[in-house]
Simulated scan of single mutants.
Amino acid sequence: MEDILRSIYQERTSQANTLGVLLIEKKLKSYHITDSFDVILLIIVKDAEQPIFIKHYSFGEKKAAMHIITEAQLKEWLLLGSNRKLFEWLDMSKVLFDRNEYIADLKKELWEFPFYGRKIKMGLEFSKLVRRYVDGKALFEEHLYLDAYNHVVHSLHHLARLAVIENGLHPELTVWHQVKQIEPEIFKLYEELVNSEETLEKRLELLFLASEFMIHSKIHLGAAHILDVLNAKDVWQINDIMNEKELLPYSLDLEIFLGYLIEKRLVEVVNVETKGHGILHRNYRVIEKLF
């Protein structure tokens, strides 16, 4: 198969912009990883007009997909975890071309999963967890149980991913299989939500109580990154927080995350007078340094 596809990628290996070429073949028990294609060609480039460029090919009775992605896009996916198949692709791939050991170093970094990288990813998962928990609880209190159920399922998923990352592993598509081995108590919460014979209202009530405890127990891990960043200045305006480069990946979850940290007494509000009578600027500063 590699010989057949060589004509597709060989020209690109001579271009200085190409960092690596990887081949991912469909396996019987993991066909979903290649999106039903027989083979994926993953080409990583330094720069390109489009961050993602895809082409499909047929050869005989088989089909192939070529994905050309920029280094910036690759790093974004790895940081945000927004393309989870990428981890399987990198893990299962055969390296066809590797400029200056770029791919070898990338795989080594993924395998070792440096603590700083884990700290950011734990922060992102924790912020999504808080968002789902807060929104779900609000819906529960409005007796919108099916909508609350949807949020609770997602919150447990983020809790599971957080536990996996905490243990130095990358969350895979089979995250529940991973977390069952690592933190079975989280897996048990999920089972109770899905399989319990209690009414939906009762299941949600019990899950919110248990989740609140679990979330609180993870707060020092989940908040470490954002508090590290906020410790760089004594007082922050919200616009500065929202536009701080290191915090941009938190996106729309940032304000609700900040509110949760205030509630948990890790961040405090600093009111500053404005020209308007009775109106104060609401600024923020860290109360407690975690590390």
Score class of each variant (00 low, 15 high):
Ser196Tyr: 06
Phe213Asn: 11
Arg203Ser: 08
Val270Leu: 08
Tyr250His: 09
Glu201Thr: 05
Lys245Gln: 14
Leu261Trp: 03
Leu252Gly: 06
Glu197Met: 07
Val229Asp: 10
Trp236Val: 02
Glu198Cys: 00
Ile219Thr: 07
His225Cys: 10
Ala210Pro: 04
Asp234Phe: 02
Leu209Arg: 09
Val270Met: 05
Leu227Glu: 05
Ile215Asp: 01
Glu191Gly: 03
Thr274Ala: 01
Phe213Ile: 14
Gly259Cys: 11
Phe208Lys: 07
Ala223Trp: 09
Met214Gly: 02
Ala223Lys: 06
Ser217His: 07
Glu198Leu: 15
Ile238Ala: 06
Ile241Cys: 03
Leu209Lys: 14
Glu205Lys: 13
Lys218Ala: 05
Phe257Val: 03
Met214Leu: 13
Phe187Met: 13
Ser196Met: 04
Leu258Met: 11
Val272Ile: 06
Pro249Cys: 11
Val272Phe: 08
Asn195Pro: 03
Thr274Leu: 05
Asp253Lys: 05
Asp234Ala: 11
Ile226Cys: 09
Ala223Gln: 08
Ile215Phe: 11
Ile256Val: 12
Ser211Pro: 07
Lys264Gly: 02
Leu230Phe: 05
Ile241Ala: 00
Leu207Phe: 00
Leu207Ser: 11
Asp228Pro: 04
Ile262Phe: 03
Glu244Gln: 12
Leu247Gln: 01
Lys233Pro: 06
Trp236Asn: 03
Leu258Pro: 01
His216Lys: 15
Asn195Ile: 01
Ala232His: 08
Glu205Gln: 13
Tyr190Lys: 12
Ile219Ala: 02
Gly259Ile: 02
Lys188Asp: 12
Val235Tyr: 09
Tyr250Asn: 10
Thr199Met: 05
Glu205Gly: 09
Ile238Asp: 04
Asp240Tyr: 09
Glu198Asp: 14
Ser251Met: 09
Lys233Gly: 07
Asn231Phe: 00
Ser211Val: 02
Leu258Ile: 05
Leu193Pro: 07
Ile256Thr: 02
Lys245Arg: 15
Ser217Ile: 09
Leu204Tyr: 00
Ile262Leu: 08
Lys233Leu: 12
Lys245Ile: 13
His225Val: 08
Leu209Ser: 00
His216Glu: 15
His277Ile: 14
Trp236Tyr: 07
Ala210Arg: 15
Ser251Arg: 10
Glu205Phe: 13
Leu247Ala: 07
Asp253Ser: 03
Leu252Pro: 01
Glu201Asp: 09
Lys264Thr: 06
Lys245Phe: 07
Leu266Ile: 01
Gly276Phe: 15
Leu227Trp: 04
Phe187Tyr: 14
Ser211Thr: 07
Arg203Ala: 08
Glu268Asp: 03
Lys202Ala: 08
Ile219Cys: 06
Gln237His: 11
Met214Trp: 01
Glu273Pro: 07
Asn243Glu: 12
Asp228Thr: 15
Trp236Gln: 02
Asp253Gly: 00
Glu263Lys: 13
Met242Glu: 09
Gly259Asn: 15
Phe208Gly: 10
Leu230Asp: 06
Ser251Gly: 07
Gln237Pro: 00
Lys218Cys: 01
Val229Trp: 02
Leu258Arg: 00
Thr199Tyr: 02
Lys188Cys: 03
Phe208Trp: 10
Ile226Gly: 00
Lys233Asp: 05
Lys233Ser: 10
Glu273Leu: 15
Val229Met: 05
Leu200Trp: 13
Ser251Asp: 11
Glu263Leu: 13
Met242Ser: 04
Pro249Ile: 11
Leu221His: 05
Val267Met: 11
Asn231Gln: 13
Leu252Lys: 11
